[in-house]
Write a protein that binds this DNA or RNA. Structure first.
Length: 254
DNA sequence: ATGGCTTCATAGTGAAGA
């Protein structure tokens, strides 16, 4: 069982890369973020021909999440219950006995901005809801673009990023609170080389210089963590022509 | 150096991303 997450930064632009990647990688479940398209224009048919059922919560121009699965999904929800939010950032569904939750955590812009406050409230609402989901479902997988680098080793230059959005202490504390619900960062269940990231700025030749952050994550509840056998970042996708600024990550379960 | 790319919405530039 292969679980994957990828912020595609426009599913319309990235569709050829996505289809090629699905054909090569054959994941069972894929969570996508920043699809940036309304539901009516989601490429359901192309993905069906590639062997995937699609579930999506989209909006015009911004945000938008989707879950692709080899098997049909059940009991889907497209928002955090009782948290008013115009932005499409959440999708959850039952797949193969797991509760799969796809998230696109707000970026936050800068620690002084209103968007940062929104990010922290959003994370608090996610935490409260997850507490319930974990009680309701025996196996929970939380995949997505968290827009948080949890530790120093997840940042190319921790001193440069100290206190900055994506690496500020309140954001990292919110990430730790998710872990305290019993969720494991699947990437860190395994020995990994140093300086592996999931996002690199489009500017400044950041990818070539490996000036990145690890902000996309796959968190697993204990039963799923016990089944994890490997976790990796597919850096090759970031090196293609016209790439997303994020690379996909994959965790394999027994 | 508050920029630097890329996408979308738009038909000039501006918002947003991270």
């Amino acid at each position: 069982m292969k679980l994957a997450t990828w912020n595609v930064n426009s599913i319309k632009v990235r569709l050829p890369q996505l289809l090629a990647w699905l054909g090569r990688e054959r994941p069972d479940v894929v969570c996508l973020q920043e699809t940036k398209t309304e539901d009516l224009t989601f490429p359901t048919q192309d993905l069906r021909e590639a062997g995937y059922h699609s579930l999506f919560a989209g909006q015009r121009a911004y945000n938008g999440v989707a879950i692709l699965a080899r098997v049909p999904v059940e009991d889907a929800v497209g928002s955090i219950p009782r948290f008013a939010d115009e932005q499409k950032r959440v999708l959850a569904a039952n797949i193969d006995g797991m509760r799969v939750i796809c998230v696109y955590v707000p970026n936050g812009e800068s620690v002084a901005s209103d968007k940062y406050s929104y990010k922290l409230s959003w994370l608090a609402a996610l935490h409260a809801w997850l507490g319930q989901e974990i009680k309701a479902y025996p196996q929970v997988a939380l995949l997505g673009d968290y827009n948080i680098a949890p530790e120093d080793r997840d940042v190319h230059d921790p001193r440069l990023w100290d206190g900055k959005v994506l690496f500020s202490e309140p954001e990292r504390a919110a990430f730790r609170r998710l872990q305290e619900l019993g969720l494991s960062d699947s990437f860190r269940l395994f020995e990994q080389p140093e300086r592996l990231f999931t996002w690199w700025d489009y500017r400044m030749n950041a990818f070539k210089r490996n000036l990145g952050l690890r902000i996309d994550h796959i968190l697993l509840s204990p039963g799923l963590a016990a089944r994890a056998r490997a976790s990796r970042i597919d850096k090759s996708m970031r090196g293609l022509e016209r790439p997303s600024d994020h690379a996909p990550m994959v965790t394999e379960l027994e």
